[in-house]
């Protein structure tokens, strides 16, 4: 009587989970877009969930899956609140750059102002190739719409 899910298989799952976790960490630390940072955080959660499921399967009980479901729930909550916060932050500074938000630093420490460096260093002209962004084909005339106060605030 054997269980096909051996310890070696468990190790495989754990390795993949650890890799996902590390990649998420890399994204969270290195990317400056708030949304991409949160995507990376979700990726870390994916890695953890994978490990938990594998552990549960290895031990032959449901606890790992139950825990993963809880993580799923928490991730959903986190995503919703994070999106709300990001919208608010964007409304404040019209930017998703996380480096704009370093007011809580120690007194006398200058800001790590990468925005200015970037604008000085990088020409923003249109380039072909991998730097090209997709463009939407114009679809007729834009309908006239009343300007709402909340759209105005963002401008």
């Amino acid at each position: 009587m054997t269980d096909p899910f051996s310890i070696d298989l468990l190790t495989n799952y754990l390795l993949v989970g650890a890799a996902l976790f590390a990649l998420g960490m890399l994204g969270f630390v290195s990317r400056r877009n708030l949304i991409v940072m949160f995507l990376s955080a979700e990726m870390m959660l994916q890695g953890v969930g994978l490990s938990l499921v594998a552990f549960g399967r290895f031990h032959g009980n449901w606890t790992g899956q139950v825990f993963t479901i809880v993580i799923l729930t928490v991730a959903a909550c986190e995503a919703s609140i994070a999106m709300a916060l990001i919208v608010v932050l964007y409304n404040r500074k019209e930017s998703l750059d996380v480096t704009l938000w370093q007011e809580v630093r120690e007194e006398g420490v200058g800001p790590t102002d990468l925005v200015d460096e970037a604008t000085q260093a990088a020409p923003l002209e249109h380039e072909d190739g991998i730097e090209t962004y997709p463009t939407l084909t114009p679809a007729g005339l834009e309908p006239a719409h009343p300007i709402q106060p909340w759209t105005e605030r963002r401008r």
Binding site: V29, M37, V98, T99, Q102, R105, E106, V109, P111, T112
Partner: peptide
Amino acid sequence: LAKYQNGLIQFYAAASA
């Protein structure tokens, strides 16, 4: 130590990682 307290959340995350 004060200059490491730069208020940037990514720095803190990187430090703990």
